[in-house]
């Protein structure tokens, strides 16, 4: 079964934020990576990064642990407005 990375990110992030409606993920492709740009409400940025980036690191660990179809790596960027 192919896992949908976008859905996975959404599932992880949703309970962490106060404004779940403002979660937006943009997908783009580069040579080596599937790029996922995650943006959330400006009040929530801190919540998904966490102290010393602890939460961001945990999210990335989970997202990167999933294999993609073409074995390209995944890159998750959290947009800071």
């Amino acid at each position: 079964m192919m896992t949908d990375i976008k859905e996975l990110i959404c599932t992880i992030v949703k309970p962490l934020v106060s404004y779940p409606d403002d979660i937006a993920i943009q997908v783009s492709e580069s040579d080596e990576f599937h790029e996922y740009n995650l943006s959330v409400h400006s009040d929530d940025v801190g919540r998904i990064i966490g102290k010393k980036g602890r939460i961001a690191k945990a999210i990335r660990t989970i997202v990167y642990s999933v294999r993609t179809e073409d074995n390209k790596r995944v890159r998750l960027t959290i947009e800071d407005k």
């Binding site: 992880i12 962490l16 602890r54 690191k57 945990a58 999210i59 660990t61």
Partner: peptide, 21 residues
């Protein structure tokens, strides 16, 4: 196995998120 990850990396990440929640 996948949910544990190498050296429990994924499991620890899950634990971290769960703790926060």
């Amino acid at each position: 196995g996948m949910l544990i990850g190498r050296h429990g990396k994924v499991l620890n990440a899950l634990q971290m998120l769960v703790q926060t929640q």
